[in-house]
């Protein structure tokens, strides 16, 4: 098989369970493919398993306390089987990640330049001087003003937006095939958010990377993504193109999320929030996880898992309502 035959990312029935005094079933059977150069947005609220799914791709979850099942492949390589040097080469070389808060994700006692150069030295075997040159080049690409000066700056000496740009420069320094973005704009001001999103979109095209973008903000997802997967209680409840999800949501949870959006809300009217709270995940779900909060729930939803209804290529809805709709069509 050649590389062409593989999607960039292939995940089948991924299950992640945290072991401990109380087990947590964080991810319960996620499957998706990501072709090279595409941007997938994973949309969901806190605790829905978005970040866990991302971290699995880099094997960043604490090994001793985590059970991971299923298939996770990047460029056809089994990520779950990587060890030692191969794993280290995978991290940062093939797949890299930008984090929610760059203040926390950068080492406070090393300069921006050192941190970028370190990654380049590690993956490409360059000496310190050439690696620093690459770091400078990367800072220019993410359009940090006066990059020579920022190279020698420590993370606390630059603004939040600039820190996130530096984080992006660090993540892209070794030309990864896949970029994982874990709510990269959540910690930023609204104005800076948009700049960072545009920059990411532009760099994604320029570098031709695949991107998995995790967010809880529909507006952000619409801005950068090609496809969206809506995640709830460790499962993808609906997937489709941005257009599908926005124009024609099928799953009640997706509809609820869209209705809860502040945009277009009228003053004086209550926002349409989804009632209730996400379920505790200390047991693996055996029925529809959303049923307790769903206005359309039937006995069937409460006793068995809903079917995954395929409505087209890449368009999937886990809901009995979609099944009825598909049968009628």
């Amino acid at each position: 098989m050649t590389e062409k035959d593989h999607p960039l990312v292939r995940i089948r029935d991924l299950k992640v369970r945290f072991k401990g005094a109380r087990d947590v079933f964080a991810v319960n059977g996620v499957s998706f493919d990501l072709p090279p150069g595409r941007v997938l947005g994973i949309l969901g609220e806190s605790g829905s398993g978005k970040s866990v799914t991302l971290k699995t791709l880099l094997r960043l979850l604490p090994e001793k306390r985590t059970d991971i099942g299923g298939v996770v492949e990047v460029e056809g390589r089994d990520v779950l089987a990587l060890e030692g040097r191969a794993l280290a080469d995978h991290r940062g070389g093939v797949v890299s990640m930008i984090f929610q808060d760059p203040m926390l994700a950068l080492d406070p006692v090393y300069t921006i330049g050192e941190q970028i150069a370190e990654s380049v030295e590690r993956h490409e075997g360059l000496d310190r001087k050439s690696a620093m040159k690459r770091a400078l080049d990367m800072l220019e690409r993410v359009r940090i003003p006066s990059p020579e000066r920022r190279l020698k700056a420590y993370p606390h000496e630059i603004s939040g937006g600039m820190r996130q740009r530096a984080m992006i420069a660090l993540a892209l320094a070794c030309r990864p095939k896949l970029l994982l973005a874990d709510e990269p704009t959540t910690a930023l001001d609204a104005t800076v958010q948009m700049q960072i999103l545009l920059l990411l979109r532009e760099l994604q095209k320029e570098f031709g990377m695949g991107v998995i973008f995790v967010t809880h903000d529909i507006g952000v997802a619409v801005e950068v993504c090609d496809e969206i997967a809506v995640m709830y209680a460790g499962e993808f409840v609906e997937t489709g193109t941005v257009r599908d999800i926005i124009r024609n949501p099928k799953h009640p949870y997706t509809k609820g999320l869209l209705a809860a959006n502040l945009h277009g809300a009228e003053k004086g009217h209550r926002l349409d929030a989804i009632p209730g709270a996400p379920p505790p995940l200390d047991v693996a779900p055996t029925s529809c996880s959303f049923a307790p909060r769903c206005a359309h729930a039937t006995d069937r939803c409460r006793t068995a898992k809903p079917p995954a209804v395929a409505l087209g290529p890449g368009r999937l809805v886990r809901c009995v309502l979609a099944e009825e709709g598909a049968a009628a069509a």
């Binding site: 280290a88 940062g92 070389g93 990640m97 984090f99 950068l106 080492d107 990654s119 590690r122």
Partner: peptide, 14 residues
């Protein structure tokens, strides 16, 4: 336990 250690692992450091 700080996040930057994950960041260091994520960039492939030994």
């Amino acid at each position: 336990s700080q996040e930057f250690v994950q960041g260091l692992k994520a960039k492939g450091l030994f």
